[in-house]
Simulated scan of single mutants.
Amino acid sequence: MSAPGDSVMPVPCPHLPDIGVDSHPASRLAAYRDGERGADFYRQALHCGQSRWLEKLPAQALLMLNRAMGASLCHRRDATVLADHPIPYQAVGWILRRDDGGGFLGNPRRHYQHLATRMSGWDIERRTARAWACWVLAKHVNPAWEADHVQIAREGIVEPAFETVHAAVVAHGLPGEHLEWQAALKM
């Protein structure tokens, strides 16, 4: 027997591309595993995020937005996709603020803490700045979400101040990216 509201389709995230009735499973990102993770990868990750949101999987939607934030969008040709779909801080904030009786969200503050402190691979400074920016956003949306105090104590992590995160987003983000993040904080 289904719970009340299970058949109700969630409202699409207005900060992500419209996907209509199409499903965009995360497996679509596998096509980019060994290739360039530029504008096409970014767009597909945003589509996957919207798809996960519409399937009432908010935690998985956030994971897809993490993937989008890891795209390499430094070329002039990427300006078009960014004009249509800026770095998805506002989508993250919108999802964090929803309580639609949907699926598992978990503790986004803890998630972004882990993401920021365990970053590896390419473009670490930019991706770490974005993870800490989302961590600030999660703290702002719901101060009751707790940090992972065990990790903090065990690894000697110092949670960054707002000013530190802001400076990192300005220094390592794309031009104007900090404005998108600030808009998400004001939603």
Rank of each mutant, 00 (worst) to 15 (best):
A61R: 00
A61L: 01
L62M: 11
L62H: 04
M64C: 01
R67E: 14
R67C: 03
M69Y: 01
G70M: 10
G70A: 11
G70E: 15
A71V: 05
L73E: 10
C74D: 13
H75R: 12
R77K: 12
R77V: 12
R77M: 08
A79V: 09
T80C: 03
T80V: 13
V81L: 04
V81C: 04
L82I: 10
L82S: 07
A83T: 13
H85A: 07
P86A: 09
I87A: 06
P88R: 09
P88I: 03
P88T: 03
P88C: 08
Y89T: 07
Y89G: 03
V92A: 00
V92E: 00
G93P: 10
W94F: 11
I95A: 12
L96M: 06
R97G: 12
D99V: 02
D100R: 06
G101D: 12
G103P: 08
G103R: 09
L105K: 08
Y112G: 05
Q113G: 04
H114T: 07
L115T: 08
A116S: 11
T117G: 10
S120I: 02
G121I: 06
I124M: 11
E125T: 05
R126S: 07
R127S: 07
R127W: 03
R127Q: 13
T128M: 10
T128R: 15
A129G: 06
W132Y: 14
W132S: 08
W135F: 15
V136G: 01
A138H: 07
H140Q: 13
H140I: 02
N142R: 09
P143T: 04
W145V: 04
H149M: 12
Q151I: 03
E155T: 02
